[in-house]
Design a protein around this nucleic acid. Structure first.
Lengths: 236, 236
DNA sequence: ACAGTTAGTGGACAGTTGTACACCAATTAT
DNA sequence: ATAATTGGTGTACAACTGTCCACTAACTGT
């Protein structure tokens, strides 16, 4: 392979070799420039993952290349690929949390489930790369990244658990049972996301079916709530 | 690195350079020899994955090395790593199906849920590498392998769905609803497996907690079944 | 205006990878 | 007994990898 710099996410050339003093993209402060290529690196990695790579098959070189930057420049921003990965975890969960906040605030008294699924579908469509990343990395071989994702998810689950107490039926559940329920709901959501990501992009009917399925699953789960007796004293 | 052939899963040397005609491991038919190294390759790959690699970070060379065989010998058994991967998918699901058969036959009239979870835990402990492989590959970047795993799971889900009709409560559910329920159960099981694999090996209390959690989740799900009305006519 | 810092370049190196090729010993078939 | 097949070996090569090093243009604080 001779041609370098294919699939460039963002070129970052400045005035090179010549005299052209202040034309083109050179009108940036140093900070701007820095954060710009940093983001280009992150985006390049995310893009490659969305395109079917898994995190460990990503190479520092290919990421740098796709970001339009020389390999060694990578180190100006991240100490290693792992560090970039962790940053990506943060970034991805930032958008996920934004989604959850939206879902929580747009509390329609009844159709909670239907609306939640709708929001999920919409967000997955909008931030596909981030979701691909989370799902992929959550089961990856890289222990550091996997645990980072898992613990973020555990956190979200806990938040959901405390949030569930708003519902009258769950008013006097033990925190343990609430955690259990929240875990079940979150797992179902994650499976739904995985299914969506596996379906061909922009296939409305497949997407609708997955969403419908998710909705029914969630409905079935909450349907059991009223008749729930906690485990130990389950015999009566 | 000078030393080759570290972490050898299975050495396969025959009489080399010298005259020692028929001693040691050379008393094998050609077929035996073949299937032997073939399995060594499979085991080597599986071992590396369990040790924290993901499938795409596996190299043909390292697998061959760990199997105690020269790289080019790999091609005598598999055309590519993908083919080896597919074989591994088959192998893994063969043990999984064996487990399901066991679970189905050991039908204790009541404690179905408790017993199912017990079997799952036990099998995961016994065939850890296979489960690691399935979970890992089910979300990997490699499209071929991922889809292979997903479709196997879809198959299992369908089988479970038809099997669920044994239960009186589900007698007259639509097949669609049964699929939905089966999917929910399977997803919960998979999440449980993933959680177990993430917990430190042989940590009895963590394992027990995960198992207990799974049991309660499954119980909650089936608890909703009696009051289920299918979606479209849900208003009454 | 100038010195320092910063974000980038380019070349080099040793290690690893997939694969092509020629070869060979032992098993198997004739 | 001899020929063919098979399952393995070893060498070789080009491509790619992470990282080290010296270098430099331009932005920045003084």
């Amino acid at each position: 392979m001779i041609c370098d710099e294919v699939h460039t996410v963002s070129v970052n050339r400045r005035t090179r070799h010549g005299s052209r003093s202040r034309s083109g993209s050179s009108r940036r402060s140093q900070q701007e420039r820095r954060s710009h290529t940093r983001q280009a690196l992150l985006d390049a990695a995310l893009l490659q993952i969305e395109a079917g790579e898994s995190f460990e098959s990503l190479s520092l070189r290919s990421v740098a290349r796709a970001a339009g930057v020389v390999p060694t420049a990578f180190y100006r921003h991240f100490e290693s690929m792992d560090e970039l990965g962790l940053t990506l975890v943060e970034e991805s969960f930032r958008t996920l949390r934004a989604m959850l906040r939206e879902a929580r605030d747009g509390l329609p008294p009844r159709h909670v489930i239907r609306r939640s699924v709708e929001i999920l579908v919409e967000q997955v469509r909008e931030h596909r790369p981030h979701f691909v990343f989370i799902v992929r990395v959550g089961y990856t071989g890289n222990t550091v990244l996997r645990h980072a994702v898992r613990s973020e998810i555990r956190l979200i689950t806990s938040e959901l658990a405390t949030d569930l107490t708003r519902f009258p039926v769950l008013r006097d559940w033990t925190t343990d049972d609430l955690q259990m329920l929240a875990g079940l709901l979150v797992n179902t959501m994650i499976s739904t996301v995985a299914a969506m990501l596996d379906a061909p992009v922009a296939a409305p009917e497949a997407e609708a079916e997955i969403a419908g399925n998710a909705e029914r699953q969630l409905r079935l789960i909450v349907l059991g709530a009223p008749s729930w007796r906690s485990g130990p004293r389950a015999d009566r």
